[in-house]
Design a protein around this nucleic acid. Structure first.
Lengths: 334, 334
DNA sequence: TTGAAAGCGATACCAG
DNA sequence: CTGGTATCGCTTTCAA
């Protein structure tokens, strides 16, 4: 910048004005400075700029997901990127793998780089580390999992309602013994979905039977084994709800192995690619990761724009996509 | 930092030494400084640090993919993140959507933030903008697509070999009329895969028949229409190679609609989730995005560590996963 | 082993 | 409209 000023024969401040497109520079000087910039191949240094700038903004935000490679997460990532781009903001993306120490490490690294804000899929249920950071002034929005405090906004899917819908749908197709596969109870969404199951059963006047419920199931292999176990039990369910995408895949495999895919109904939570090409095609409760990501980014930028209102909880609707597997009737009904 | 120094009763420089774990600070002072840091909740400012630091490193790299939400890309993203984490480096991730102006915009934003290096899935074939940036000193590694210059390293899958393998596999199963679906020819990988097809045919002593080749097909819907067109042609192929994951999905749909999935063989390039649960399960040439991402990150960090050797091209093997759809024999052979 | 002063590249403030 | 000077938070250099 110094060199640019020298070449254009103006002061540092004038170059700064040109670079930042501030008003009040005569056309003549503007031209000279622009020429000098081009000639020298000058590149503005955002980091130095934000150091001195009054608002100290870095035009940078952090995004901490469970796993950037997970299709649900990466779609959120993409949606956030789009909103950020309109604001000339870059996104640091990272994966916590559901581990508190990774979450803490990432947040520390982001704070050291002075990001303007953070969108995070929080690990665990108490959020102590994150809230401490929030209280120190880092704007923060939770995504996919609801915050334990009103200091931060949350954008979540309608997990409970989605599973209730699934239960109702199965009940309407004559099912009274509906099995449930759930992820780790320490994950907020897993808990919500289980509640949806319990409430759905109640609404339909069905009993909650412990032997049909399998929680804390993690990953495809475990889901397959657990679903098989359910299917081969003495009084097996006539329908299954798999409340997470990997669990759905495991359940599909188990149904195949037992050759029960045309006999036992299945509804998965969260859509999976190619689900419509299986036989039967898999009925799912779909989330809307694009809407979730957009809403989260919009909340964060609203905060950066000075919104000081109480933390909001935005619930993005889920919808049931009937494809076949969820419309099978139990044996003997038709 | 000033406050920390005041509270500990030492100079700025001593605090700096402690923060950077530089040797040559007495245990007493180290203790006092650490206490002051904790007491004040001091946070090191990496951006200010790198501004003054001799090597000007920001411990930050850029990653520009086609689309961070694409499963192949997001797996690369994750692999790179892991390598970067070991080096305390954060990753700015972004999507070009295959558009040159987005690529240029992102690179400009990264350069303004003084990233240490860039891993990019380059748009187009000439790479002019990127190479200019490279020449200005920004370390750069290309991923998934080979560089047009030895100024940058490239890490690519064995596209050509993979498709050759597919052709050979189909020929071994009696096919002589093998159709080909290709993505936009302006994409380097699409071109490579097409060459693999041509060379594979030659190796097997088969003719290249123009009416069996459909290139510049983009997306699921177009692939479905094009594949249907092929299937309903006068002398249709007995086997199909879909050389990209979305094209594979389109081809599967077309085969289903024509009820030809048990009659016309199919091999897809790039694995797709649930492919093994379809009927027939889909045979694919799988890439190894984790290995690709790791290699790319390792190359970049090697450059940052001072490796000045000529640009390398690292080719990561592909492998054929036989699941059923690629092992169907043409009618009348068995 | 410790510290004082200079300066990284830019913007803020205020004077001309 | 334009520029001089102080300063952002930190590291470097060099002297004590």
């Amino acid at each position: 910048m110094r060199e640019v000023a020298a070449l254009a024969g103006v002061s540092l401040k004038t170059v700064s004005r040109v670079v930042n497109r501030e008003p009040g520079v005569s056309g003549d000087l503007l031209q000279r400075v622009d020429d000098a910039i081009r000639l020298l191949g000058y590149r503005h240094d955002t980091t130095a700029s934000s150091l001195r700038r009054a608002d100290r903004r870095t035009a940078t935000i952090g995004l901490l997901l469970d796993d950037v490679a997970n299709p649900f997460s990466s779609t959120i990532n993409r949606a956030i990127e789009e909103v950020a781009r309109e604001r000339q903001t870059l996104v640091f993306a990272g994966s916590s793998d559901g581990r508190l120490e990774r979450e803490a490490e990432f947040v520390r690294a982001l704070a050291a780089r002075r990001v303007d804000g953070l969108i995070v899929m929080p690990v665990g249920l108490d959020h102590a580390t994150l809230l401490r950071e929030r209280q120190r002034g880092l704007p923060m929005v939770f995504v996919d999992r609801r915050a334990s405090s009103l200091l931060v906004d949350s954008v979540v899917a309608d997990n409970r309602g989605g599973v209730q819908m699934a239960v109702q749908h199965l009940a309407e197709h004559g099912h009274r013994r509906i099995g449930f596969l759930g992820d780790l109870s320490s994950i907020w969404t897993a808990e919500e979905r289980y509640r949806g199951y319990v409430e759905g059963l109640a609404t339909e006047g069905l009993y909650l039977e412990a032997e049909l419920v399998r929680r804390d199931v993690r990953g495809i292999a475990a889901a397959e084994a657990t679903a098989a176990d359910l299917l081969y039990s003495i009084d097996p369910p006539t329908a299954l709800i798999a409340s997470q995408n990997l669990l759905t895949i495991g359940a599909i495999r188990a149904l195949r192995s037992a050759n029960a895919q045309q006999r036992v109904a299945l509804i998965g939570f969260d859509d999976v690619p190619l689900a419509d090409l299986l036989s039967p095609p898999v009925t799912v409760v779909a989330q809307d990761p694009v809407a979730i990501g957009q809403a989260a980014a919009q909340r964060l930028f609203a905060r950066l724009d000075g919104d000081e209102s109480e933390g909001q909880v935005i619930v993005v609707p889920t919808r049931l996509i009937a494809r076949g597997s969820g419309e099978l009737w139990p044996p003997g009904v038709l």
